[in-house]
Simulated assay, not measured.
Amino acid sequence: MSNNDDARALLGPLAGEPAGAQRLDLTEIIRAGDKRRRTRTWGTTALAVVAVAAVGAGTAVSVRNAAHTSGVPMSSPSAPSPSGSAPAPDRSPAPVGAECRSAFLPGPTTVVHAVDHTGRYVLEEQKSSGGKVKAVVWRGGAKVSEVTLPTFTDASYALNGKGDFVVTITSATGRTTPYVYADGSLTALKGGNGVAVAITDNGRIAGSQQPGSAVVWQSPDAEPTKLALPDGYYASGADGMDESGTVIGYLQGGGSTKAALWLPDGSVRELPAPVGRDERSLTGIANGWAVGSDTVPGQGFVTGFRYNVVTGKSEELPAQFGAPQVAGGEGNVIGLYDDAKTYVYLNGVARPLGRAPVDGLLGALGISDDGRTVTGSIHIFTQKGDRNSGRAVTWTCD
């Protein structure tokens, strides 16, 4: 990996089991998950942010960027700055609204690995006979489909509003192969080694291929098409796509990495960081709203933003959303704040996710298009510290 890849690669999940009865609230850990880490072995990268929260003894939420050596409080404008560095951004929090109500999802769904943009479909992994793993899709507690996956050491998924999905399989040798499940069958996408990061309801797929090219498959059986690479850049990668076909990702060249998006007509648009900020990264897009983060030079302070594709305007998000990881329709986002709560940004108000039905490692994975349904998992720590035991949870924001 290059230095840029290292700076943007997702940090691994928390190691070990928390002592005592601490309740952890970690949006990004669940979102990535032990089996949802997107493989970026040859240049396709993800935002290097992990939000770490520990409740009890006044422990602050921290956000760490791999480009920096230590985590810092997400919302501590008064924190001392290293000598010669810029001060932390002074951002005000959004007004706090009523909690979103939590409940277990109907049916036997355990840990959720993907949620569609409507909030109706969820995907989980189940062990099958002989040690194989099945991908199982549910809707409203009813099983929609299941398919046995090729043997893998890691897998990441994206699900559409019809219950079809893409999965990137990482083999024991580190090779990544993207597959699509559509029309009742699982097939490898054409083009060989690569990753798939999104699938729209009409079957358009976004991803990346060796040796570092953002691509789209216009349909599950199509050959991949490389997305535009502007002059001065040598590599690109895709990190998401919305229903319009707008792809978010990054461009690499000249010793830096720039956030970018590709419009449905194939044109590319760079998103430079504001003056006084480091290079920015995009982490999600839905209904023409892209979300991401940039940092204060020389520090790990993270500032969240959302970008409207139609107007071309970027706006800084309130303090509760310093490192947004999930994008929803109408500019809704999910964020983690230093009171160890996860919030949904809805109509200018921060709505906290209510306490889950059981204690454990809590994480939100997806927001419905209207921003009022959040889906995720509660990972329950066993005596062996197994985080893969859990239940699927939904929050309703009335």
Rank of each mutant, 00 (worst) to 15 (best):
V137K: 02
V144A: 13
S145H: 09
E146G: 13
P150H: 08
T151K: 09
D154C: 15
D154K: 12
A155K: 12
Y157E: 05
A158I: 11
A158D: 05
K162L: 04
K162T: 10
G163Q: 06
D164L: 12
D164I: 03
D164S: 10
F165H: 00
V167M: 07
T170W: 15
S171Q: 14
T173I: 14
T173H: 10
G174S: 14
G174T: 15
P178M: 09
P178I: 12
Y179L: 14
Y181C: 13
D183M: 14
L186N: 01
N193W: 08
V195L: 09
T200P: 07
T200R: 07
N202Q: 11
G203C: 11
R204P: 02
I205K: 00
I205N: 01
A206W: 08
S208T: 10
Q210G: 11
Q210C: 08
A214S: 01
A214L: 04
A214I: 01
W217A: 00
W217H: 04
W217R: 05
Q218P: 04
Q218M: 05
P220I: 04
A222E: 10
T225W: 03
T225E: 03
L229V: 10
G232L: 15
Y234I: 03
A235L: 02
S236A: 08
S236W: 01
G237V: 01
A238P: 03
D239V: 15
D239G: 11
G240D: 12
M241S: 02
M241T: 00
E243F: 03
G245N: 06
G249M: 05
Y250S: 03
L251Y: 03
S256I: 09
A259L: 05
A259C: 10
L263N: 09
L263R: 05
L263I: 13
D265T: 15
D265K: 14
V268S: 07
P272F: 08
P274A: 06
V275W: 13
D278C: 15
E279V: 09
E279R: 11
L282Y: 09
L282F: 14
